[in-house]
Amino acid sequence: MKFFLFFSFFISCAFAHAENTKTLIIIGDSLTEGYGIAKEQAYPALLENKLQDSGLKWKVTNSGVSGSTSASALGRVKWALKSKPDALMIALGANDGLRGLKLSQLEKNLSKAIQLAKKEKIKIFFVGMLMPPNYGTQYAKDFSATFPKIAKAEKVDFLPFLLEGVAANPKLNLADGIHPNEEGHKIMAETVYQFLKSKL
């Protein structure tokens, strides 16, 4: 039964393909996972609805893992590619920043992951992140600069900030002040939708 999960993954994907639906896998952290809110109300699910409502036959797979850092990017891209998706979105890095990990490492990790995905000749979307000002002006600046730098180097479609219009607004976040709530995810879904709709 070792490969049970593996097989079932294929079966579900194969089933999806049969209906001529394309698959987008979003590899992300708690922001993608929808920490604290129901799976159906996290932005990947909302995004799928939006895409389908606008006639785009896309299935969006939420591959968010709370707490994950860019170090997991490579392994997870490898895993995701096995199911032959049509597009991949990488939205990692926030935890690297929150944990004060080295930015050089962040850059290396994400670049490697993107390079691997590019070999499969599928659509790749890359999402950037900002740090709150308490982390220090210099660090915040260096951190946010890392993402466009990667996007430019790897020549991938880039969404500069996943939490645009959501971050630091208490009304759009959970009590922890970090994770978006249901309203926040609606805005995130819209942001991502606007970014993707012309590219899919």
């Binding site: 220090g136 210099q138 660090y139």
Partner: peptide, 17 residues
């Protein structure tokens, strides 16, 4: 309290202020 990256002459570290 807040987290911040502190830069000393040697290196930078995440710190709880």
């Amino acid at each position: 309290e807040t987290y911040s990256m502190i830069q000393s002459n040697k290196e930078s570290r995440l710190v709880l202020l």
